[in-house]
Computed example of a mutant assay.
Amino acid sequence: MEGIAFSSEERGVIVKKIQLYFAEELGQKIGSFDAEFLLDFFAKETGAYFYNRGLYDAQALLAARLDDIQDAIYQLEQPTEFQR
């Protein structure tokens, strides 16, 4: 699997958010280069955890939807002499 890649527009937004966080929460000003370095570090070192969590959440949502579909199909079943 390839690493997490963001478009240049996405990177720009994320970098600005990192800079804002440092300014507001830590009282430090960091440049774009440092913020991009942090973004690359976190994407490489922790990105897979967030990615996997997203996959698990998607699987759970899909499983719930499939259960709903199975219930809906079961409700359409017509009565017959055959018992399952």
Rank of each mutant, 00 (worst) to 15 (best):
M1Y: 06
M1V: 10
M1C: 08
M1I: 10
E2T: 12
G3H: 08
A5F: 05
A5S: 12
F6M: 07
F6G: 03
F6N: 04
S7G: 11
S8L: 11
S8H: 10
S8P: 11
E9Y: 09
E10Y: 06
E10G: 07
E10Q: 13
E10D: 14
R11Y: 02
V13A: 14
V13S: 14
V13G: 14
I14W: 03
V15S: 06
Q19L: 04
L20D: 14
Y21T: 06
Y21W: 09
Y21L: 09
F22W: 04
F22S: 02
F22P: 01
A23I: 01
E24V: 02
L26V: 00
L26S: 05
L26K: 12
L26G: 03
G27Y: 00
G27T: 01
Q28G: 00
Q28S: 04
Q28C: 00
K29I: 13
K29M: 13
S32Q: 15
D34L: 09
D34Y: 07
A35V: 03
E36D: 10
F37Q: 09
L38F: 00
L39E: 10
L39I: 06
D40E: 11
F42M: 01
F42P: 00
A43E: 01
K44L: 02
E45Q: 05
E45C: 02
E45V: 02
T46S: 06
G47I: 00
G47F: 00
G47T: 01
G47W: 01
F50Q: 02
F50M: 02
N52L: 06
R53I: 05
R53F: 02
G54R: 04
G54E: 01
L55V: 02
Y56D: 05
Y56K: 02
D57E: 15
D57V: 07
D57T: 08
D57C: 09
A58C: 08
A58T: 07
A58Y: 04
Q59G: 15
Q59N: 14
A60D: 13
A60T: 11
A60R: 13
L61E: 14
L61V: 12
L62Y: 13
L62H: 15
A63Q: 11
A63W: 01
A64H: 08
A64Q: 14
A64G: 09
R65L: 05
R65F: 00
R65E: 12
R65K: 15
L66Q: 13
L66I: 07
L66N: 11
D67I: 10
D67W: 05
I69P: 00
A72V: 06
A72H: 09
A72S: 10
A72I: 07
A72G: 07
I73N: 07
Y74S: 11
Q75T: 12
Q75W: 08
Q75E: 09
Q75S: 11
L76R: 00
L76A: 08
E77N: 12
Q78F: 08
P79D: 10
P79V: 10
T80I: 07
T80W: 05
E81V: 10
E81P: 06
E81M: 12
F82P: 12
F82R: 15
Q83G: 12
R84C: 15
R84N: 15
R84K: 10
R84D: 15
